[in-house]
Design a protein around this nucleic acid. Structure first.
Length: 846
RNA sequence: GCCCGAGUGGCGGAAUGGUAGACGCAGGGGAUUCAAAAUCCCCCGCCGCAAGGCUUGUCGGUUCGAGUCCGACCUCGGGUACCA
């Protein structure tokens, strides 16, 4: 009797699917299409369990939809540009291109044994010149439509390595290699005008009904629409007024100072002949560029000596400070400080001895602010203190609206709607990215490369032995002639942010080898992505950039209008985690151990007991990693696939456990044994309980279908366990058992496609499960004749009764009150209220 | 700092505001076996001899009824614009 042997059968079925071209996406006008896409991987070198989970989820959907009759597109590619390739070149020598393509080859070889229903004929990497050349072509289109511009922006500058650092390369304000304090430095950089789309990107979120609410909320907050006011504060020295932006003008009475950004032109100008201020501004530059660093840094400032007149209380003069917490990028780069109603302003005021004045109190609690700022919700009523606009007790929102009206009618300020969303800086001073197809000419200025010269290819002859951008010091690549006047010119040496690459790959998959970015007929048929699947870490940047990029592509004629929201449905899956095993060395430093080196709480080699640290995201440094290749080698792909889908809801993290994988393998073996047992039954075996098995089968079809549709694969698997147990216990006729077994194979096929084919073939099924229509449940087989109703007394469950499904409530009441247990618990007390929820529960209130 | 989530037995988890703990893992008992593996059957939240009581991170609220809704908090995770 052959036992379950995935090592033999999995390659067999993969070859069979290939021969049948089962997964080649075909544009078929006669059938509805379904485009399922998982976020493509970065080719780091090896696949990890997180990839297995991500791609198995997509595969379950793809195989299920194919069985439901859809023409399915399920492609795969590589997000292949990025820093790690350059870091590898710096650390180990070699070339980013070699490193990247070698990694892709390894990962493709690791991925194929998973048996994913991917159309590999559409594969590409973003570092293929055929891909990035089309991206350059679109960049030029964007330039023509005014979607691109250049401006100055700050970067993290490593003064020792003389190079720009990514945020993750800055550790505690210092460069990761040089350990030198990082400086903020301005460079001229390329930007996409995403902020022109702020309102549209915000407003369109409402229509993304099949996106998680949390992602829409995160994007809404990120875009950050606010209504405020711009108010010019007039300088007492007669200089140009300082324009401040505020979303809380109702607190104007409490204004006690003005704070401007160190990058504000006024601050810069004053610093020219104010050494103390110049030093202060230089100090504020020694901070990295992240928002978190800015927000967490101690609030510091310097008095410029200038004063302004309070706009509604001309007798009051407010000092002008430079504050390290004022962002030049948001609003006007200048704010008024109201310490009483803003904790950061209050801290600042206390530090520098500035005035604190309430603009309002909580009604009936007229207490001046001390150490804690009074910041009630905008919907809460407050009592304004002799407010210039004549407001008394009102909500802050009412106060804001009234104040803006007051300022506008008197010409003191202008109401403004602003967005937090900033334009997308795409310039990177790095080699391994898509070159920006632009040329700098002394005579013509900035000129786009001619499209017939695309792609602007990355030169291969570069070295990484010194820090900085090799393109910038390349002997010949930089030098070129101006496409307009033919004079000597310089090529742009910035490359594009890798988020650009991933902002349109979904569109490219619809025509992956075309000589234009997209082909309209293909895009018309395949777009949009019906189901997009990926990590929650991409909730804001990648998804927002893609939404912008699709709009820009539409403007340039590369996508139909329908595709400006490219992802109809989004699912965000959790991580795969694992326990961490730690010991300590002689000096007390932690030493981590791979799961396979630990057995029974001890290090296998030394017998040393390990400390178990609760599950965390798998990482190489903590050695809590499980290699899918090992798992497939030991148990087969189906075990890996079933396990990652089985335990946790897909949107949550799942913990990989060796015991769980072992148990999965055993279960699949049991299913195979059951299949063999049924096949070997005598054909004329008499049946008992055939109807029960048929009912269980229809219930399983219904429930598995529902749970797959609802992305609750862990529940699909629980239902499959139940159905398997029902078959196992059944004594039905052979034909009935065989029918149940074949339906089980179909229902399991999205998760464990190889085993499903084995079962199907063994039961004499025709063709491939992969090409068989999804089974349908008979609704008549799903309803039960009776229901069990729990009976509560005062909300506590005390008894239960079994009644016909459609029994009227009045009859249910009678039966419930006549129940022995109910009589006992009531002990003669009068019934005050009786609640009967049909088919659900009875609650007796005494 | 700010924005967004998550928290239920020994473990992963299930539960349209209606029997908390489906399904699985681990554990315990039994059958089979010379023995073991594999397989099969039974038990399995906590306290209690029992009756019963307690129990969904903490505290409070709404409700006939709260894991689910509301408020405050705690812990962990994701993002924070140059990691991808």
């Amino acid at each position: 009797m052959p036992s379950y042997d995935p090592a033999k059968s999995e390659p067999h079925w993969q070859a069979a699917w290939d021969r049948a071209n089962a997964f080649t996406a075909v544009r078929d006008a006669a059938r509805p299409k379904y485009y399922v896409l998982e976020m493509f991987p970065y080719p780091s070198g090896r696949i990890h369990i997180g990839h297995v989970r991500n791609y198995t989820m997509g595969d379950v959907i793809a195989r299920y939809k194919a069985a439901c009759g859809f023409s399915v597109l399920h492609p795969m590619g590589w997000d292949a540009f990025g820093m790690p390739a350059e870091n590898a070149a710096m650390e180990r020598g070699g070339h980013p291109k070699t490193w990247t393509y070698d990694n892709i080859a390894v990962m493709r070889d690791q991925m194929k044994p998973l048996g994913l229903s991917i159309d590999w004929s559409r594969e590409f990497a973003t570092c293929d010149p055929e891909y990035y050349g089309q991206q350059q072509s679109m960049f030029i289109d964007f330039m023509e439509k005014g979607l691109v511009y250049r401006k100055n922006a700050v970067v993290n500058w490593d003064p020792v390595d003389m190079t720009v650092l990514a945020n993750e390369q800055v550790i505690d304000g210092k460069g990761w290699r040089s350990n030198a304090p990082v400086e903020r430095r301005e460079l001229t950089q390329w930007f996409f005008r995403i902020s022109d789309f702020s309102e549209e990107l915000l407003e369109a979120l409402d229509r993304l009904e099949n996106w998680p609410a949390k992602v829409r909320l995160m994007q809404e907050n990120w875009i950050g629409k606010s209504r405020g006011i711009e108010i010019p504060f007039h300088r007492t020295d007669g200089g140009a007024p300082i324009l401040c932006y505020s979303t809380r003008p109702d607190t104007m009475r409490g204004a006690s100072f003005i704070a401007i950004s160190p990058e504000h032109p006024l601050a810069q100008a004053l610093a020219a002949d104010n050494a103390e201020l110049a030093t202060f501004i230089a100090e504020t530059r020694k901070m990295d560029t992240t928002e978190a660093a800015m927000e967490k840094a101690e609030k510091k400032g310097l008095d410029t000596g200038l004063t302004v007149t309070h706009p509604v209380d001309p007798g009051l003069k407010l000092p002008v400070w430079v504050g390290n917490f004022v962002l030049m990028d948001y609003g006007t780069g200048a704010v008024f400080g109201c310490p009483a109603h803003d904790q950061r302003d209050l801290d600042f005021a206390h530090r520098y001895g500035l005035a604190v004045r309430n603009a309002f109190y909580l009604p009936g609690n007229e207490v001046e602010v001390g150490d804690v700022a009074l910041v009630p919700a905008k919907t809460e009523k407050v009592a304004y203190i002799d407010h210039f606009a004549g407001i008394g007790v009102a909500t802050s929102q009412e106060g804001i609206d009234a104040t803006i009206g007051y300022f506008e009618t008197r010409g003191l300020g202008q109401g403004q709607v602003k967005y937090r969303l900033r334009d997308w800086g795409i310039s990177r001073q790095r080699y391994w990215g898509c070159p920006i197809p632009v040329i700098h000419c002394d005579a013509c200025g900035v000129v786009a490369e001619k499209k017939e010269n695309l792609p602007v290819r990355l030169p291969d002859d570069v070295s990484f032995d010194i820090p900085g951008n090799p393109l910038d010091r390349h002997p010949t690549w930089r030098d070129c002639s101006c496409p307009r006047c033919g004079a000597k010119a310089r090529r742009e040496t910035d490359t594009m942010d890798t988020f650009v690459d991933s902002s349109w790959y979904y569109a490219r998959f619809t025509a992956p080898h075309a000589a234009t970015p997209t082909v309209m007929a293909e895009a018309e048929y395949w777009m949009n992505v019906d189901q997009y699947i990926g990590g929650i870490e991409h909730a804001i940047l990648h998804l927002l950039y893609s939404r912008f990029f699709a709009r820009a592509m539409h403007i340039c004629g590369h996508l139909p209008e329908r595709a400006i929201e490219p992802f109809d449905a989004l699912f965000t899956q959790g991580m795969v985690t694992h326990e961490i095993y730690m010991t300590r060395d002689a000096r007390g430093r932690p030493v981590y151990h791979l799961p396979e080196d630990v057995e029974g709480g001890k290090v296998r080699a030394t017998g040393q007991a390990v400390t178990v640290i609760p599950s965390a995201k798998m990482s190489k440094s903590k050695k809590n990693v499980v290699d899918p290749v090992d798992i497939i080698h030991k148990y087969g792909a189906d075990t890996a696939r079933w396990f990652v889908m089985s335990d946790s809801p897909p949107e949550r993290d799942v913990e990989w456990t060796a015991a769980g994988a072992e148990a999965t393998f055993k279960h699949l073996g049991r299913v195979w044994m059951l299949c063999e047992r049924i096949a070997s039954l005598p054909d004329d075996k008499p049946g008992k309980g055939d109807d029960d098995l048929i009912r269980a089968m229809h219930r399983a079809i219904h429930e598995v279908t529902q749970t797959i549709e609802g992305f609750a694969f862990n529940k699909s698997i629980a239902k499959l366990y139940e159905f398997t147990n029902a078959i196992q216990k059944s004594d039905a006729a052979k034909a009935t058992q065989r029918q149940a077994m074949m339906v089980l194979a179909q229902l399991m096929s999205p998760m464990v496609p190889h085993l499903a084919e084995d079962i199907w073939a063994h039961q004499g099924g025709a063709g491939l499960v992969a090409e068989t229509a999804w089974p349908r449940a008979d609704p008549a087989m799903l309803v039960d004749d009776t229901v069990t109703l729990p009976i509560q007394i005062n909300g506590k469950r005390r008894a239960e009764i079994v009644v016909p499904r459609d029994l009227p409530a009045a009859e249910v009441e009678k039966i419930a009150l006549a129940d022995d247990a109910v009589i006992r618990f009531l002990a003669g007390q009068p019934v005050r209220k009786l609640i009967v929820v049909p088919g659900r529960i009875v609650n007796v209130v005494v």
